[in-house]
Design a protein around this nucleic acid. Structure first.
Lengths: 234, 234
DNA sequence: AGATGTGAACCAATTCACAGCA
DNA sequence: TGCTGTGAATTGGTTCACATCT
């Protein structure tokens, strides 16, 4: 590959691990800005974000050179640059499928509005929920729950490109297929199921049970006496 | 380091990336077993889990040699081995703090019971919720919501070692400190806040807004024409 | 002086490709 | 023959340490 040439650290290819941390920096910086902090050093921002300063600087270096040597980073300028890189300056239209407790929690999660995400549609399979108005976003706006049969219309009318699946596992693949067919190209999946999608559609999975199991694994290792002494042949 | 010697791939040090995938294999295998599948090849299990077969085999090799060459893996035996490695054979006692929609969703999430997790306590700061009985686990059992002031008692009485934080960001660090002081050594944090904990306490973070932002980043890259053509000096 | 930005060294994870066993 | 298990090669990510710039 040609490697293009020279300087340009920004264009093309920010490491995935870095992308996963940018939202944290963005949130921490927003908090600092609201507290009136105009400038931060990599040391300070790193500590507040729970990473090392070397990692933070390397991460930011992938976006460009936005710091000042001997001084640090301008809080608001850095917020803007990260937001731009993440695409937070656009507004992303999101449809949530499955309005149980989890879908409900997602719908009125405060962190979406103000970060470029707008919930434009809610869909549920339970007929008794249809028509229910759910507060979405920070202010008093509400979104009405519509029938699962209308899923395609909800996506098209709302011009949504992101779908959130908060249904039981059994329904997830079908919902996924329909979301994709209606034009959704990014999916956040909370159902404990492995989804298959065509090329070009991104899926991220959040699995509550998995997270607990990972914790349990480490927890177990902290208490060696509990090892149900297995195998190893005596 | 001495490397102990020979064979023993299992004891000490399963890679973190492998640990994160074991719960998926476990769930997929459970599904296969319920469908009457007695044997799987790495190819089949990998496809069903959304990974490559080489990765799957490498992952499983860290637990030991539980497959049969030319044949594959015995479904139930592999389920058991993964469960044992993850500590799913013990019962983990979990306290959930913050019983909003999210906490509610977590409390009656079906995937916990039957995987070794038992919700032994629910705590909320809202006085109007105290005393409410929430169904937890697969059967009809309920757990009563108790006051935030009782947090320490709930942890101690329930002998919980795992805490789940589903409070607003502002309350998270305080709740975390109190959980740790009461003896919790593993924490699953849903609040959008960076927690600091003493050595020896594990924290995993699940951040809904972060996940969406990562999706948005990739979504943005799919539509280059939308780039708000910035900088690069003309 | 005091911080950033970054090459170089290091470590972890993935992929390749095949030896070895049922 | 067919599939597992694993060294070797590769890729990706983190840490170190310092040259560089304000």
């Amino acid at each position: 590959m040609p490697l293009s040439r020279a300087s340009d650290a920004s264009r093309r290819g920010i490491p995935e691990a870095t992308v996963a941390r940018l939202p944290i920096y963005h949130r921490v910086l927003t908090g600092l800005s609201e507290s009136g902090v105009a400038t931060v050093s990599s040391e300070e921002l790193a500590a507040a974000s729970g990473v090392t300063s070397a990692k933070l600087r390397k991460d930011l270096s992938h976006l460009g050179s936005y710091g000042t040597r001997g001084v640090g980073y301008d809080t608001d300028y850095l917020i803007y640059q990260i937001a731009r890189e993440l695409g937070l300056t656009q507004d992303w239209r999101v449809v949530i499928v499955g309005i149980g407790n989890l879908g409900h929690a997602l719908a009125n999660y405060g962190g979406f509005a103000g970060r470029g995400f707008r919930v434009v549609g809610l869909v549920d399979a339970d007929p008794s929920r249809i028509g229910e108005k759910i507060p979405a976003g920070r202010d008093g706006e509400t979104v009405e729950v519509r029938a699962i049969a209308d899923l395609e219309d909800v996506v098209l009318d709302g011009e949504a490109s992101i779908g959130v699946i908060a249904t039981p596992a059994g329904a997830a693949q079908d919902v996924c297929d329909r979301l994709v067919a209606a034009g959704v190209t990014s999916i956040l999946n909370f159902a404990p199921a492995v989804l298959s999608t065509p090329e070009g559609v991104d899926v991220r999975k959040v699995d509550l049970a998995t997270e607990l199991q990972i914790l349990a694994f480490h927890e177990q290792r902290k208490h060696p006496e509990m090892h149900r002494s297995e195998g190893v042949r005596s």
